[in-house]
Amino acid sequence: MRVFPVYAPKLIVKHARIFLTGVIWVKDLGRLEFEKGRFLLPRKSLPKVKQAILELNELIEAQN
């Protein structure tokens, strides 16, 4: 598990694309899981977490 002390979308996306499957922890967002290079949306999450995951997945799609 990698810990990101700040929310840096480009760096987080780079990590997810390299490792494809895993878990990261982002300060103020908490634990985020990714599989096959995409972030998974938890069943229950705060609106800011949901927005961050959608933003990260959009960045991943834009890079493909």
Rank of each mutant, 00 (worst) to 15 (best):
L20D: 10
F19E: 15
G22I: 04
W25K: 12
W25E: 15
I60M: 12
L32P: 02
E35M: 11
R43M: 06
E58V: 11
G37I: 05
M1T: 15
K27I: 10
P42H: 13
F19T: 13
V3M: 02
M1Y: 00
F34M: 06
V3F: 15
L11R: 08
V6W: 12
F19N: 11
P5Y: 15
K14N: 10
P47L: 13
A62M: 12
F39D: 06
L29K: 03
Q51H: 12
K36G: 11
P5Q: 14
A52D: 00
A16F: 02
L41Y: 11
E33R: 15
T21F: 08
F4Q: 00
P5N: 12
Q51L: 12
K48H: 08
S45L: 07
A8R: 08
G37Q: 06
V6I: 11
Q63I: 13
R17P: 01
L54T: 11
L46F: 12
K14F: 09
A62W: 09
V6E: 12
V3S: 13
L11E: 10
R2L: 15
E61F: 08
K10H: 09
I60N: 05
D28Y: 14
G22M: 04
K14I: 12
Q63E: 14
V23M: 08
L20C: 13
E35Q: 13
L56N: 02
I24L: 07
R17G: 13
A8Q: 08
L56A: 00
W25I: 07
L59C: 06
Q63M: 10
Y7D: 01
L41M: 08
F39A: 02
P42M: 05
K36R: 09
E58F: 08
G30Y: 03
F39L: 03
K36Y: 08
L56W: 01
L56Q: 00
L56E: 15
K36P: 03
K27H: 15
E33W: 15
G30N: 02
L40K: 14
G22T: 01
R38Q: 07
E58G: 06
Q63V: 12
Q63R: 07
W25Y: 15
I60W: 11
L20S: 09
Q63F: 08
K10I: 12
V49D: 00
P5H: 15
I53H: 00
R31H: 04
K14R: 11
K27Q: 12
A8T: 13
R2F: 15
P42N: 07
R43C: 09
R17H: 10
L59T: 05
W25A: 05
W25V: 05
F19C: 15
A8Y: 08
A8K: 06
G37R: 04
F34Q: 00
H15M: 04
V6N: 04
G30E: 02
L41K: 13
